[in-house]
Design a protein around this nucleic acid. Structure first.
Length: 300
RNA sequence: GGGGGAGUUCCAGAGCGGUCAAAUGGGGCAGACUGUAAAUCUGUUGGCUAAGCCUUCGGAGGUUCGAAUCCUUCCUCCCCCA
């Protein structure tokens, strides 16, 4: 039979890790984490990685496999994760992917095309142009090298504009031509589970989790990484707000509140993303039995 | 007790006779998203039988064709002198 990839996703703090580990345990397989911040081994508190007990329930992959100094991207993740999944499929016929990074999960399901990795030098150069010339400069540039992309992009979004430019600069081919929108073929079935709970409950959990991180030493962790605050891995909720405080741009109190509201917003953005899968099964994290039967029901 | 200042839409805070359902920011809500993604970006935010109408700018009166904006009075806060 075709192997099955069980995707377990949902907003931050909903309870993905524990449920994902338990589901993997029951299926006799392992967990591929799809959390773009738990990749970094140095970030031990602010990214809320699974605790030892959870990790012990099933083999986990892609948690702390990177350093904050490493370059990484979704495509790298796609290749590596697919490899791990193949092995999991061989032993149990199932694989579990748990995490809240929508783009990473999507890439596992449908691929992301084949483009050269970003060249750090080129990226820095394009960023310089943005810094000095602003959005206008980027727009003009994109319009000149790739009018098709210009008509498609969100012209207010610097990152999107810069990506198009960066790709053109490193390949000489317009981004709009290189981007292929056909989903990749996959040799496994996908069961998508979205975890959710009442919003008031979710938000309360988020707030509590932030308080717990603070007790666990989030501030100390942020202080330690302050010198590296410009690294992409540290442009992360929980750290960037504390960096603002450390740079004297806010009070500690304000920073903590900011962490909470930014986490809530992140959760909302995730929910918006997850709403696009009509085939997904939405469950409360406590409904383990419902989830297991959804996974085992071949007609769904 | 005397003197001065303030009460604005969820919050902060502009407005100081019409162009005000009311700037701006925050928060909320909704959304976008194929290589930075816990990133980045957008929209919306009094109600309705919606190109129109209704109810809002501490309360009550008043002036005016017309008030959040002027007057009277009441209530509540803040500051200074005593």
């Amino acid at each position: 039979p075709e192997p099955t990839l069980v995707l377990i996703t949902g907003p931050t703090a909903v309870g993905k890790s524990i449920l994902g580990a338990e589901v993997a345990r029951r299926l006799g397989t392992g967990v591929v984490s799809a959390d773009a911040r738990q990749f970094y081994r140095e970030l031990k508190i602010g990214t809320a990685p699974p605790d030892p007990e959870t990790l012990a329930r099933a083999p986990h992959h892609f948690i702390g496999h990177l350093s904050i100094f490493d370059y990484y991207n979704v495509s790298l993740f796609e290749r590596q994760a697919l490899e791990v999944l193949e092995k999991l499929f061989e032993t149990s016929g199932y694989g579990v992917a748990a995490g809240g990074s929508g783009l990473y999960l999507d890439t596992l399901c449908r691929g992301i095309g084949d483009l050269p990795d970003a060249d750090p030098g080129i990226r820095a150069y394009v960023q310089d142009v943005f810094r000095s010339g602003g959005l206008e400069a980027l727009r003009k540039w994109v319009k000149g090298i790739d009018p098709v992309y210009y008509d498609e992009v969100d012209l207010a979004n610097p990152n999107r504009l810069m990506r198009g430019i960066e790709v053109f600069l490193s390949t000489g081919i317009p981004f709009s031509e290189l981007r292929n929108n056909q989903p990749a073929r996959r040799n496994f079935r996908i069961k998508r589970i979205v975890l959710n709970r009442e919003r008031s409950d979710l938000f309360a959990r988020i707030n509590q989790r932030v308080d717990r991180m603070l007790e666990d030493g989030l501030v100390e962790e942020a202080v330690a990484f302050f010198p590296y605050r410009h690294l992409n891995a540290l442009n992360t909720v929980g750290y960037k707000e504390l960096f603002a405080w450390l740079a004297n741009r806010s009070s500690l109190r304000e920073a903590v509140e900011k962490i909470k509201t930014n986490s809530r917003r992140y959760a909302k953005r995730q929910l918006t993303w997850f709403k696009r899968y009509p085939e997904a099964g939405w469950f409360h994290p406590d409904d383990l039995e419902g989830i297991m039967s959804f996974i085992r029901n071949d007609r769904l």
